[in-house]
């Protein structure tokens, strides 16, 4: 079967329904993948998921909008805030936010913590059964920085009134400059933008004094898995290998306008920057620093949805952090 890797990892694999493919994975097969992606969702050294579509989570921007505002891809958080000012001054909205898509908005929190504390820290904090790790000052800082985007006009207030896909449509319409989301965005918007719309993308900026690098990247992968009770696991894996052949991966790029994990296959032009990011990534992690795949309920109920509640202004960063610590402790009881 095939599905979004975070979902399958958090569902079927977590429930012990996956067939470990370690016995079939040869060094030659492994060598066909770009770095860090084949073992993203391993559990205790066992590989259950084989990725076939690679969607880096980055800022996707309209090159025309950036040109109009006279900005280049920001490398640090401070540069991002300055870019927001320039874009606003040019009469455009800087960042598109879909207020009702918690999964999209939690990417801000995931990245901010990964930049401040390094990738893997967020997952560690979530697994601290006392909830105390959330009281680290970086958590409140990350929450405050995400809210700062609204306060400083990076995200226009009107976004609170949008329902997906209204915000991303404003990027296609040339009213908003960028959006933090997966690499499917340019393809998803192609009917609104037309094929000639010029897209660029850049990694989530570094934060001064933080432990993470701008090349530590979050990605949404689509993956194949074989069910535990599959009568012909070997043949199933042969099929997966066939689908991941150079010819078929090129076919997916051409037909689906998507990025793929196989080395040496050129991605579509409008996500060419994403391919560079994928090939130079130092660490690749799944949704919520891998939490969606490791413990979906913990991620969604305790972290993701309460974060969005704060992000859209229903509670303060302080209240959010307090709730995060308390709810994590309750969750593990």
């Amino acid at each position: 079967m095939d599905q979004d890797a975070d979902q399958v990892a958090g569902g079927l694999v977590a429930a012990g329904q996956g067939y470990s493919l370690n016995e079939f994975i040869t060094p030659e097969f492994e060598a066909t993948f770009v770095p860090s992606v084949l073992h993203m969702f391993d559990v205790d050294g066992q590989t259950y998921l084989i990725p076939y579509v690679y969607n880096p989570a980055q800022f996707f921007y309209s090159k025309a909008a950036f040109e109009k505002a006279g900005v280049t891809a920001p490398k640090t958080w401070d540069e991002l805030l300055i870019a927001c000012e320039k874009i606003t001054a040019a009469g455009l909205s800087p960042i598109a936010v879909e207020s009702d898509i918690q999964g999209y908005n939690a990417v801000f929190f995931t990245y901010l913590l990964a930049r401040l504390k390094g990738p893997g820290w967020m997952k560690e904090a979530a697994y601290d059964k006392t909830g105390e790790m959330w009281k680290d000052s970086a958590v409140l800082q990350a929450a405050q920085m995400s809210v700062e985007l609204w306060a400083k006009g990076c995200v226009p207030e009107v976004s609170k009134g949008y329902k997906w896909p209204q915000a991303q449509q404003t990027v296609a319409a040339g009213e908003t400059a960028m959006e933090l989301v997966g690499a499917w965005l340019p393809t998803e918007l192609v009917s609104a933008t037309g094929p000639d719309f010029q897209w660029g993308s850049f990694n989530f900026p570094e934060v001064a004094g933080g432990a993470g690098k701008s090349t530590d990247m979050m990605a949404f992968m689509l993956s194949y898995m074989v069910l535990k009770d599959a009568p012909h696991p070997k043949e199933s894996f042969e099929f997966i290998k066939f689908m991941l052949s150079e010819e078929n991966q090129k076919g997916m790029v051409a037909a689906g306008l998507v990025g793929v994990p196989r080395k040496g296959v050129a991605w579509p032009a409008n996500i060419a920057d994403s391919q560079v990011a994928a090939e130079t990534a130092t660490v690749v992690f799944g949704e919520g620093d891998g939490l969606q795949g490791a413990n979906a309920e913990l991620w969604v109920k305790v972290i993701r949805d309460p974060f969005n509640d704060m992000f859209v202004g229903n509670v303060t960063p302080e209240q959010f952090v307090e709730k995060l610590a308390a709810d994590t402790a309750t969750f593990w009881k």
């Binding site: 207020s99 009134g161 329902k163 859209v312 202004g313 229903n314």
Partner: peptide, 13 residues
């Protein structure tokens, strides 16, 4: 009506 224009019907509240 400026205030009416700015009212966000679909905002969380």
């Amino acid at each position: 009506w400026e205030a009416g224009t700015k009212f966000l019907w679909m905002s969380p509240e």
